[in-house]
């Protein structure tokens, strides 16, 4: 029983649920401020994402005519739940181990796909033609990045697995333990193709420029979120904030998990998140425009695919 209670706590409060939400929102506020400064603007207060959520929570939700009300309102909850669970599966070195009860890295991989699927379903449920376009865009982007990221995960899992005497290590805890013993993959040239592939995957998955195509405001009016308002829109905002935390956390676990234990470890993790978010998200968004969907699809299929294959071949050959 205490095991179950602990699991529930991990999903709802730390490091899932509440913690992931706060982390995600802070990252977003920070990233917006940095972006503003890079564009020589003042920028919003650091807590603006929290204010936005509070505002949305007090508003009414309009459900468009002809939309299946039940599906339309259930989807955002599904998205938030998937991210809360995914966040609980991200280990924080020295603080939190991925609970075995939730599954391994492949489960996490599937959970990460849920927000995109939720957005697609939400878009098509709302019945707007713009959402329909966003649906097809989201789908093609997802098709493009899912393959390469699987290659990256496979590469790392095989490398760690072989060192353990087996074939493949699917537990994030093992991956972290390996890096703590032998040094982080970030500093290992053999892993750089995989790192690069992950760095391309990460903006595509988070919908950041140049891959913010499904939600492009000036093209498809925020795409899937077009018909959403009030608390339901707030849930989507929560979902994307948590997703940012999860994807960045996954990147840290895969490539640079090294940190001391205890409170210092937690601080290290948060600090790394902020660095990745300001360097990755803010700088990317300020230095680039948006690709067209066909350009993005070609780019995402070719480059991370090649990089992922290269890293897999190198790892298979060397280990």
């Amino acid at each position: 029983m205490p095991e179950t209670l602990k699991l529930i706590f991990q999903v709802l409060v730390f490091p899932g649920g509440l913690f992931a939400l706060c982390l995600g929102l802070c990252l977003k506020g920070f990233e917006r401020r940095i972006r503003a400064r890079l564009q020589r603007r003042v920028g919003p207060p650091l807590l603006q994402p929290f204010f936005d959520l509070a505002k949305l929570a007090r508003k009414d939700t309009t459900i468009p005519e002809g939309a299946p009300a039940c599906l339309f309102s259930a989807l955002p909850f599904a998205g938030v739940c998937s991210m809360a669970i995914a966040a609980a599966m991200i280990p924080i070195t020295g603080v939190h181990l991925a609970p075995a009860g939730l599954g391994d890295i492949l489960v996490l991989f599937y959970l990460l796909a849920i927000p995109a699927i939720v957005l697609m379903l939400a878009g098509s449920a709302s019945g707007s033609p713009f959402s329909a376009i966003a649906f097809s865009r989201e789908l093609s982007i997802m098709m493009a990045y899912e393959g390469p990221i699987l290659l990256v995960i496979l590469t790392i899992a095989i490398r760690v697995g072989v060192s353990q005497g087996g074939w493949i290590a699917l537990s994030l805890n093992d991956i972290i333990a390996y890096q703590q013993r032998y040094g982080a993959f970030l500093f290992d040239p053999v892993m750089w193709p995989a790192l690069l592939a992950f760095l391309v995957f990460f903006p595509a998955n988070l919908g950041v420029a140049p891959f913010d195509i499904p939600e492009a405001e000036s093209e498809v009016l925020d795409g899937p979120l077009l018909e959403y308002s009030g608390p339901l829109l707030g849930l989507f905002k929560m979902m994307s904030a948590m997703k940012a935390g999860v994807v960045i956390g996954l990147g840290i676990a895969l490539f640079y998990p090294n940190a001391p234990g205890g409170a210092l470890g937690l601080m290290c993790f948060v600090l790394k998140c902020f660095v990745v978010s300001s360097l990755g998200v803010a700088v990317l968004r300020t230095s680039m425009g948006r690709m067209r969907i066909d350009q993005a699809f070609r780019f995402l299929v070719i480059w991370p695919g090649i990089l992922g294959l290269v890293s897999l071949v190198v790892v298979l050959w060397r280990y």
Binding site: L38, Q39, R40, R41, A209, P210, D212, A216, S218, E219, R285, T286, S287, M288, G289, R290
Partner: peptide, 16 residues
């Protein structure tokens, strides 16, 4: 034009 392609930094720069 820069704003439409999602390149807001260039937009800000030209507007400045």
């Amino acid at each position: 034009l820069a704003h439409i392609v999602g390149f807001d930094t260039l937009f800000m720069h030209v507007m400045e």
